[in-house]
Design a binder for these strands. Structure first.
Lengths: 390, 390
DNA sequence: GGTGCGAGTCGAAAAGATTCGATGACAGAC
DNA sequence: GTCTGTCATCGAATCTTTTCGACTCGCACC
């Protein structure tokens, strides 16, 4: 409750001198400085946030806009919150979490009120309505995710298109020619969830380029029974599928590997499995899975760094898009396809595999991006049809 | 960027009149009121947050203190964030997320700065250092979790002691006499993580009362291999264990059921499994598991409601602890023990179980608390030794 | 006609920090 | 001795809103 006035009185100096000591914006003699700092310490002085906001040009608060949808996977979300907060604190910034039911209105209100110095946007959709708010706003926006249109903000993201391409590329390299792509919830693609779509379409693009076939399906309702039914039906219809790329959450991935095993396929001998664009926990599943995870730490740090540069005038307010290369973690769930593979072969009992076939800590391959492949055209994925499993 | 001055000018009235129209704290003539509202609308007036804070007695911001530890399970955490934010918005409050690396200092700073009207605390430990901050603070605190000492704040929590008791009670009712309790990370108990300890000790208390034996172990390192080794060793040492209560996260729970299955036990015929105090996703595992989940929505809502009552002077600032009854979700993973059960029996292949043995949507039993059992004494669990597996 | 009252409105103070411009002290140059 | 420049410090304006006290009506009452 002690104000700058109290500190000034105790140190026997004027208010402005205290302010200059604390901000360092003008030179102050050594003795005065120490007296002031001592007084501030003794009184536990903490500047009043309201007054600072009102007078100063910084509020030292960032807004984190995190819209919630029915199908949003909470598990992957929170890590982004935490990494953002931790990075912002390094710059002495606090984070206001916007995750209410009326995201758009909340955001407009906050931006107008001058409560925050900038806005970080999570889970960006194609044609996201928040971009209009950014356009009319006096504070800078940084999107974590590629909004397509960066004319009103800066953006940072993982290169999901490349991630999708590399996922297919790795499997193609291993000799697979027909791959099943198991997406997340269909609704999330329909509402334009950007990273899901780019990953999927990157995979389809690479498949087109490599002349391999990719069959697309989405996360079935009804959990284990649903997945098992779905997989059974698809693998019966496409017996030449020898690999699966999963873009669904960790539990569903676990169920997927269980379903595959129950249907009589061994991983990786009969079926290669690769998880892409999810949480990074596939190492801890009972059947560890090769993975290209989300990189919350990397993108959140960059987003905050960029925001600070913009606020300091070191970078333009909009127009840049920074893509981070994906990383690949090997866990032994990918192998060359068996030419003699036959769907519906004798089921292999799970317990027949000895426990030591379970790998220990995941081996981490270096950051890796598709080497000298043709760049994906700006306009997005061309002439690629999304083929869905029936 | 339009201020109250602009609105006043446009409406042809004084600043104070505008303020009174907007706050409704003094009567204003109908015509004037309408002119002011029109002007405010046209200028998209949004009051400056800093000025409001400085002059007014409410900032309309709550802090959410969410400390992070090495072993914190992010997955369960974020739901608490979101439910808190959503509830706070109902009262026109925003939420500042404190999740930096120096939780204590951040909290003290925020409280001192007058930036927030109140603080909500997550993941409370026994002897939590944040309680001292609450004691010296001028703003009210509400803990989500039982801090033991409620002399400086109010608290709301799930009744984890009863949850632990009911978990053991249900199994005892079903006829089990020796139960394995698989906890979370040992470090979390050692640092005094409140809900984990209370759940565990509630289980031990009920075991004592019912004269059943509970063997305690903690989440082993090394994921699948570790769990499988651990389970093998424990079940070899204690072949008469017929039920498991798990307090570890969803992936570990999945691995636990897999390990149990691989060791040749069928669930629930040979081994009953029950998950307590975790995320509520055990229904979606390949082997659905009976569950007494965390109830983030319930406790977060109550915490915010209580905070608002305190701010409105409708409730005292400290001293109350509200416990919510746990809920039990049946998923068919509990059965009576087989008297003829033998450890090390012939392994049952996973795939030998038909897919239709996988249950559909979980059946939800009504909110339920242990009926007329002796209440747990205030001092905590008496003369119960925590017996750990070797 | 004077007084009292309530409704409607306004002016000005207040909140606490930041920052510009001014002042005083003092050293060094001429 | 006077001038110039630098350093350290101070006073006062400023940011925007809320709110208290005061003012002006018009009307009723004695």
């Amino acid at each position: 409750m002690a104000g700058i006035k109290d500190v000034a009185k105790r140190a026997g100096v004027s208010i402005s001198t205290v302010s200059y000591v604390l901000s360092g914006k003008r030179s102050v003699s050594k003795e005065t400085k120490q007296r002031v700092l001592k007084a501030a310490r003794e009184l536990q002085y903490s500047p009043n946030a309201g007054a600072r906001m009102l007078r100063g040009d910084r509020t030292h608060i960032l807004a984190l806009s995190a819209p919630m949808y029915e199908t949003t996977d909470y598990n992957n979300y929170s890590v982004f919150f935490l990494k953002t907060v931790q990075r912002a604190r390094k710059y002495h910034y606090d984070v206001l979490l916007l995750a209410g039911d009326d995201e758009e209105q909340d955001l407009a209100r906050i931006v107008e009120s001058g409560l925050v110095d900038g806005v970080l946007m999570l889970d960006v959709n194609i044609d996201d309505s928040r971009i209009d708010i950014a356009r009319n706003s006096s504070v800078p926006f940084v999107a974590i995710g590629d909004p397509g249109d960066t004319s009103a903000l800066n953006a940072v993201d993982t290169d999901f298109t490349r991630m999708g391409r590399e996922a297919v590329g790795r499997l193609a390299d291993a000799g697979h020619t027909k791959i099943l792509f198991v997406g997340a919830h269909r609704e999330d693609y329909e509402r334009g969830s950007n990273f899901l779509i780019r990953l999927r379409d990157g995979a389809l693009f690479e498949a087109h380029r490599r002349k391999v076939e990719v069959v697309v399906t989405y996360q079935p309702k009804g959990d284990m029974a649903g997945i098992q039914r779905e997989m059974k039906s698809i693998l019966a219809q496409h017996p030449d599928i020898t690999a699966v790329i999963s873009q669904s959450n960790i539990i569903q991935l676990g169920n997927l590997t269980t379903a595959i095993t129950r249907l009589g396929y061994r991983i990786p001998q009969d079926m290669s499995v690769l998880s892409a664009g999810m949480g990074g926990e596939a190492a801890t599943l009972s059947t560890p899975v090769d993975e290209m995870p989300l990189l919350p730490e990397v993108v959140c740090q960059r987003a905050v760094d960029i925001m600070m540069d913009v606020l300091d005038g070191k970078q333009r307010r909009c127009g840049t898009l920074e893509l981070t290369a994906a990383r690949y973690f090997e866990r032994g769930s990918i192998a060359a396809p068996r030419s003699e593979h036959r769907a519906g072969s004798v089921p292999i009992s799970d317990s027949a595999r000895s426990a030591d076939s379970v790998s220990d800590a995941p081996s981490v391959s270096d950051a890796h991006s598709v080497s000298d492949a043709n760049p994906v055209p700006d306009a997005g994925v061309p002439d690629v049809r999304i083929r869905e499993a029936a």
